[in-house]
Simulated scan of single mutants.
Amino acid sequence: MNIFKKIFSSFSSSHQNKNDEESKYLPEKEIPVDEQFTHNFKKNGGKFLYCENEEELEENFISILQENDWFEMEALTFEKELYPFLIENKLNYKNPTNPVFLLTSCEGLIAQDGSVLLSSKQIFHHKPNDLPKNIIVVAKTSQITRTKSDGLSAIKNRYKNEIPTNITTMQCFKENKNDDFLQYGIQPKNVYLLLLENY
């Protein structure tokens, strides 16, 4: 009886060791893309507001205005679809000389690094450093992609033969205290993301 115990116990322990060794080489479980984006976006210093519906989107937009005392100020947007947000809250968006914030949509949200993908459809020819320090981005959950190449593929599919120019990403949302040469010359932006559920 002891012989069988020894055989089975040595078999099960060697089997266990083999499983442990194999699991070291298996790829890690992939984090859901929305969780990965949220984590990386917040890590970059972005402020994230989830909205279940249009009503909640409007309420959260007003909350941002209240928090920063931006009512009756100048704002900038390049998208007609976003005018109602500004009109309803008495924000001057026609030829602003000193806009307090930019209100914009985006092309995509990149989970890999928590960045916001923009193009000439949102910011025309402007570089991120030329935009106001404060930015409110209105996006949809369906716009979250795993990688930048996924985001670029989505742009290609969306616009077919009229691919926009000035495609860029923003991911610097706080002052970098370390001397990171990759962030050199990039002005950090105070970014709020209003993310509307649309799955």
Rank of each mutant, 00 (worst) to 15 (best):
M1W: 04
N2K: 09
I7K: 15
F11Q: 02
S14R: 10
Q16N: 11
K18C: 10
E21Q: 09
E21M: 13
K24Y: 15
L26K: 14
E30L: 12
P32C: 11
Q36E: 10
F37E: 12
H39Q: 08
N40Q: 12
F41M: 07
G46S: 04
Y50T: 02
E52D: 07
E52Y: 10
E56Y: 09
L57F: 06
E59Y: 10
E59M: 07
I62T: 04
Q66N: 14
N68S: 01
E72N: 13
A75D: 09
F78H: 14
K80N: 13
E81G: 12
L82I: 05
Y83P: 05
F85W: 04
F85K: 11
L86N: 12
N89E: 04
N89K: 03
L91H: 10
P96I: 02
N98P: 05
V100N: 04
F101N: 04
F101I: 03
L103F: 03
T104N: 06
S105E: 11
Q112R: 00
G114Q: 02
G114E: 07
Q122P: 06
I123P: 01
K127I: 01
K127R: 15
K127A: 15
D130Q: 15
P132S: 12
V138S: 10
K140C: 09
Q143D: 07
T145H: 00
T145F: 00
S149H: 09
S149R: 07
D150W: 02
G151S: 09
S153D: 04
S153F: 00
N157M: 04
R158N: 09
N161K: 15
N161T: 04
E162M: 11
T165C: 02
Q171H: 11
C172I: 15
C172N: 02
E175C: 08
K177Q: 06
D179W: 10
D180Q: 02
D180L: 12
I186M: 07
V191Y: 08
L194C: 03
N198A: 15
